[in-house]
Simulated scan of single mutants.
Amino acid sequence: MADAQATGPILQLQGVQTHIGPYHILHGVSFEVPRGGVTMLLGRNGAGKTTTLRTIMGLWRASAGTVTFDGTDITRHSTPAIAQAGIAYVPENMSVFSDLTVAENMRLAARTGAIDERRLDWVFRMFPALKTFWHQRAGVLSGGQKQMLSVARAIIEPRQLLIVDEPTKGLAPAIIQNMIHVFRELKQTEVSILLVEQNFHMAKSVGDTVAVMDDGRTVHTGAMAALAEDDTLQQKLLGLSLAAHQ
Rank of each mutant, 00 (worst) to 15 (best):
M40V: 01
G207T: 01
Q136P: 02
V206D: 02
G46N: 05
Q136V: 09
H24S: 14
G71V: 15
L162P: 08
H19L: 10
L240I: 13
V206C: 01
V210S: 09
T7F: 06
P167F: 10
M202Y: 13
A2K: 13
V96N: 09
G46M: 00
G170P: 02
D73H: 11
P22Y: 10
E197R: 08
G207F: 01
Q235H: 14
G58W: 00
F183A: 02
Y23C: 12
L194G: 12
E117M: 09
G143D: 10
V38G: 00
V140W: 05
V96M: 08
A62T: 12
M224L: 11
L108V: 15
Q136K: 11
T55S: 14
V206A: 03
H27P: 00
H181E: 12
A172C: 02
L59P: 06
A129P: 06
I193D: 10
Y23D: 14
W134A: 04
T209L: 02
Q246D: 13
V151S: 04
V29F: 11
L238F: 04
I175S: 07
R76Q: 14
L13A: 10
L240C: 11
M1N: 13
M106P: 00
T79A: 11
M126L: 15
M1H: 13
R137W: 01
L233G: 00
A83G: 09
N178E: 15
T18V: 15
L41P: 00
L130H: 06
L237F: 07
A138F: 06
G46S: 09
R44C: 05
L171G: 04
V16I: 14
Q17V: 12
T218L: 03
G48E: 02
A203N: 10
L108D: 05
F127T: 03
R137T: 11
V212Q: 06
N93F: 04
A138D: 08
R44S: 08
H24E: 15
G71N: 11
L186P: 02
Q84K: 13
T218I: 07
V90E: 04
A129F: 05
I10G: 02
M179C: 03
Q198V: 10
K169P: 02
T209Y: 06
D214T: 05
P22Q: 15
T51C: 08
K131R: 13
T168E: 06
V29D: 12
A203P: 04
T18Q: 12
T39V: 08
N45I: 09
T209H: 07
T168G: 08
G143C: 09
D215E: 15
S95G: 09
A88M: 05
T50F: 01
T112V: 12
